[in-house]
Every structure is written in structure tokens, then in C-alpha cells.
């Protein structure tokens, strides 16, 4: 188990309704801060603050594209959250799928 951003941090980050809305918009597709601010009823600095919390919780990541900063989901953080919710067999089957599909490509 890695102890980088904790599951607790992820759930705390998502416990705020506005922050959850920001998260859901980012989950839909990668977006810039300005675009997000236009969609939620809070100021742009507030949106930036929410994004910072989501990023620290390992749920989103950002990338500079030209002059803009684009936010998108952080796959590892989401995977950790999922595996927490899934339980042993779902987790094992997901690992099984990854191994089966990866090996199959190598064989070809």
C-alpha cells in the first residue's frame, strides 16, 4: 500500500459540494480553470483553491498547454479510490485483465 495521498484525503476533498462539481466537470473532459469558473457559481480564485485540494488528494492533475493550465483526472488516484471501494475479487479481476491483455500483445 502506498501512503501517498490517502483515501481519507480523497473522500475529504469530495465532501464539499462545489468541489465535487468541479471534480465532475474535470472528469467529463480536461478543462482549463477559466472554463471551470464559468460553470460553477464561485469565483475563479475559489475554483483554483478547489483544484489545489483535489490535486493534493491525488484526484486531478494539471498540465500547462501554452499559456493555459489544463486540469484532468489523475488515473492512479482514481484507481486507488476504486480499488478501495471494489474489494478483493473486483481488484483481482482488474489486475487479471491487465495481465492477460498486456501479455497477449507481447506474444504477437
Amino acid at each position: 500500500m502506498t501512503n501517498s495521498p490517502s483515501i481519507g484525503q480523497a473522500f475529504t476533498a469530495l465532501s464539499d459540494a462545489t468541489r465535487r462539481e468541479v471534480f465532475e466537470l474535470v472528469a467529463e473532459r480536461p478543462r482549463a480553470v477559466g472554463e471551470l469558473a464559468a460553470q460553477v457559481p464561485v469565483s475563479r480564485p475559489a475554483v483554483s483553491q478547489h483544484l489545489r485540494v483535489l490535486k493534493e488528494a491525488g484526484l486531478v492533475e494539471d498540465e500547462a498547454v501554452g499559456a493555459r493550465r489544463i486540469y484532468k483526472l489523475h488515473p492512479e488516484g482514481i484507481a486507488e479510490l476504486r480499488s478501495y471501494l471494489d474489494g478483493f475479487w473486483s481488484r483481482s479481476l482488474r489486475a487479471f485483465k491487465a495481465v492477460a491483455e498486456a501479455g497477449d500483445k507481447e506474444d504477437r
Binding site: 478483493f88 481488484r91 489486475a95 487479471f96 492477460a100 491483455e101 501479455g103 497477449d104
Partner: peptide
């Protein structure tokens, strides 16, 4: 799983340690 059924069965039964938690 995006692999043929024979491979899925083989990985599950013969390579268990590769995916088991």
C-alpha cells in the same frame, strides 16, 4: 477481457500469481 477465451482461461488458472493480490 480483450483476449481470446483460451488465453483468458490460461492466465487465470496457470498464472494466478501474476494477478492475485
Amino acid at each position: 477481457v480483450k483476449v481470446p477465451i483460451e488465453r483468458a482461461f490460461k492466465v487465470f488458472t496457470e498464472e494466478m500469481e501474476s494477478w492475485w493480490d
